[in-house]
Amino acid sequence: MAVARLTGQGAASRKYDLLTAIGAAGLAGGPADQRLALRLIVLITARYDWRRDRLATGQREIAALWSVDERTVKREMARLRERGWLVLRRQGGRGRVAEYGLGLAQLLQDTAPHWAAIGPDLEERLTPSPVPAGTSQVIPFPQPEGEDPWTRILQSFAAEAPVLYSTWLRQLRPGPLQGGELHLHAPSRFHASYVQTHLALRILAAGRENGIHALRIEG
């Protein structure tokens, strides 16, 4: 499954699709999941800056938006970070609010089981063309080729976690492998931070057989 970007032609409909998918996934869960999904939808709708791809809203303002106290905001934002639905880009402090981005890859991965219940048109917009039963999964980008350790890791992710591969790993460029430490270069500091925080352990697990025991990710 490739990630449908929320920019460019058709982006507006995909944003609505994402909000619908979050709502459907929340409604399929218990009361706590439903509240969390609703709060995220309201927060995205009211305060997410799509042009800059960021959320920079203070806890007091979020509390008013959700009709809760700031302690509840703190707890719920922590849950959203733990799920990977929001990614902390800049810690708040000294008169400035924390800055977040959407964990788009994780959101799509977590809501994907509920897309069919919404309708085939949404599935078509959020994914590539459907894969016929009995055929291998089709990923609409070049497959990693080669026998070096990093390429073998990419091949593993492309087969088992194509959303993560297409969104976060495919853009990384490997540097030298020295003493079991692999150097990776990301297109931005945020990209490097996300991979380090959310994917480093999985990359190391996939690379252990190839002699990779440590990572250095720079952006």
Rank of each mutant, 00 (worst) to 15 (best):
D33L: 08
A46N: 03
R89Y: 07
G92V: 12
Y165A: 11
Q155H: 04
R89V: 12
R14M: 03
R60A: 14
G58V: 11
L102E: 04
A63G: 02
M1K: 03
A64K: 07
G30R: 05
E99K: 00
V195N: 03
W168P: 00
G119P: 05
R125A: 14
A4C: 08
Q91S: 12
G26C: 04
L40D: 12
G8R: 13
R5E: 13
F157P: 01
L177D: 04
E218Q: 15
E181T: 15
A11N: 04
L172D: 01
G92K: 04
M1I: 02
F157Q: 01
L40V: 10
V195H: 04
R90W: 06
A32R: 12
T7C: 10
P144N: 12
V87F: 04
D53G: 13
S13Q: 15
V97K: 08
A192K: 04
A25R: 14
G95A: 05
I62A: 06
T7I: 13
A112I: 01
D148Y: 02
L199M: 13
R35L: 11
G175I: 12
L201E: 15
V68G: 00
H191F: 14
L55W: 03
R208L: 06
D69F: 03
Q34T: 08
R170V: 14
R35T: 11
L27T: 11
L182M: 05
M77H: 01
G175Q: 11
V87C: 07
V3T: 14
P187N: 07
G26A: 04
V68D: 01
V97M: 10
A133D: 14
R189Y: 07
G207L: 00
A21P: 02
L88W: 00
A24Q: 11
R189L: 11
R216P: 01
G93R: 13
R71Y: 10
Q155M: 12
F190Y: 11
S13Y: 10
S13E: 15
Q143L: 15
P149I: 02
A4Y: 04
P140M: 09
G175M: 11
F141S: 11
L27N: 13
L199N: 03
G8V: 14
A32K: 10
R60I: 09
M1N: 01
Q91W: 06
G179M: 13
M1A: 10
V73H: 02
Q155P: 04
R60H: 10
Y100K: 03
A116H: 00
Q9R: 14
I41W: 01
L38F: 05
G119Y: 09
Y16V: 12
A24Y: 07
V87R: 03
L65F: 09
V42K: 01
T151Q: 06
Q196P: 01
G219R: 05
R47P: 00
F190H: 08
Q137N: 08
A32N: 07
G29R: 02
I44N: 00
T45H: 15
L199A: 10
L154W: 00
D110L: 05
L38Q: 14
H213V: 06
R208W: 01
L154C: 15
T7R: 14
T20E: 13
